[in-house]
Amino acid sequence: MNLEIILHAGLATGTVLLFASIGELLAERSGILNLGVEGMMLIGAMTGFSMALATGNPWLGLLLAMLAAGVLSLAHGVVTISFQADQVVSGLALTFLGTGLALVLGNGLTGQNAPLIPNYDIAGLAAIPFIGPVFFEDHSPLVYLGYIFTPLVWFYIEKTRPGMHLRAVGEKPVAADTMGVSVYRLRYFYVFVGGCLAGLAGATISLSVSPGWYSAQTTSGQGWIAIGLVIFAQWNPLRAALGAYLFGALRRAILDLQGPRMILGFVNPLYINPNLGFFLQMAPYLLTILALVIGSRAAMRKRIGAPAALGEPYIRGERGL
């Protein structure tokens, strides 16, 4: 039970949730709900690991993982954007397909040792007391990427011209279309980007944060938590990142709580009966629900919420909503 260790590990596991939830956030801001995150993450984790194993280069594995998950997400794009099918069902189908494909193609990868992405210190910053060891020491470069990535995405969505087009397509596609923005093309693009980021999240697990391929246990529902985080964050990337790191720290704290015999002068009930840990493991899932309740109450009060056209297919030439 060491706060420094918990926060340090929380940033690492939180980075996985961060990539996945920001990817989903981008797709949702363009109006496409993609519930296939879990499946895309598994494809990413499997592809990254197996390609690193095959080529000996974890970075190449990472790249291919993003590409594989991005290509998979296009299936969702075709079905929901071109065929205007129900986004919920298509997203579920994507999860089934991604999970099944990852298990079939990843057969035999368990127990193998692939070259991994090494950890680095940030020279200078690592020397700052407490902050340094937590944020800037012995982290995967992907964690550092997450620090820079989040504010960039926020800036992109809120302050740039392509970001404005993204928001327009998700809020009022008819208006965007009249402005000359191609709704279909942008939605395909952001679904693809979301897929790539989910793939990156998956490969971050298998090549860096908790390396290896453990079939469906590799992600163990984190894709779904990422979707919950997007709602909790009210479609704001900065809040999504904060939520991701908090959940990451929580996952680690749960593991650490089971170790010591005494906590704060009391006998640790988990030490006496480790089975009580099952209740502790419920925490991330229950907290996701709690976060949603709080998030939706705040959204109701402030009248902010989902992108207006989220989940609505856009049919050119028909009267828009």
Binding site: G39, F83, A93, F96, L97, T99, G100, L101, V104, N107
Partner: peptide, 20 residues
């Protein structure tokens, strides 16, 4: 490998919603 049934299920569901 163990995921075959799940993979087929995924393809079935995708085919169904596409065929809608």
């Amino acid at each position: 490998p163990s995921g075959i049934a799940q993979m087929i299920q995924g393809f079935v569901l995708f085919a169904v919603i596409s065929s809608d």
